[in-house]
């Protein structure tokens, strides 16, 4: 897998750590337990396009949002997570 890091350029997937679906957003502190249970545990797990978090730990040390197809592994976009909405 080749991940197009917005800073480093395209790199081998082995340089990155995966952290799953980027869609769930951490609820507000007072959102209550159910909201946190949903945020922490429940996943859409789509077969197709997904926006996900990858960490370029062996590169620029940035968290990325990568748009990838889980059926084909084709990556259509990658951006820095900081300042991007999933």
């Amino acid at each position: 897998m080749r991940i197009p890091c917005p800073y480093c350029g395209e790199r081998d997937g082995a340089e990155f750590t995966y952290c799953g679906d980027a869609s769930p957003v951490r609820p507000a502190a007072d959102a209550g337990e159910a909201a946190f249970v949903d945020y922490v545990y429940m996943r859409s797990n789509p077969a197709g396009e997904i926006s996900e978090h990858w960490y370029h730990g062996q590169g620029c040390r940035n968290w990325l949002i990568v748009k990838r197809n889980t059926r084909t592994h084709v990556i259509s976009a990658a951006m820095l997570a900081k300042g991007s909405a999933p």
Binding site: Y41, M42, R43, S44, N45, P46, A47, T70
Partner: peptide
């Protein structure tokens, strides 16, 4: 492997990733 896919047809989300 495809639990989320079938569950989605039933309108459910599961604590599962494939």
């Amino acid at each position: 492997g495809h639990s989320s896919q079938v569950a989605e047809m039933a309108g459910l989300r599961l604590p599962i990733e494939s």
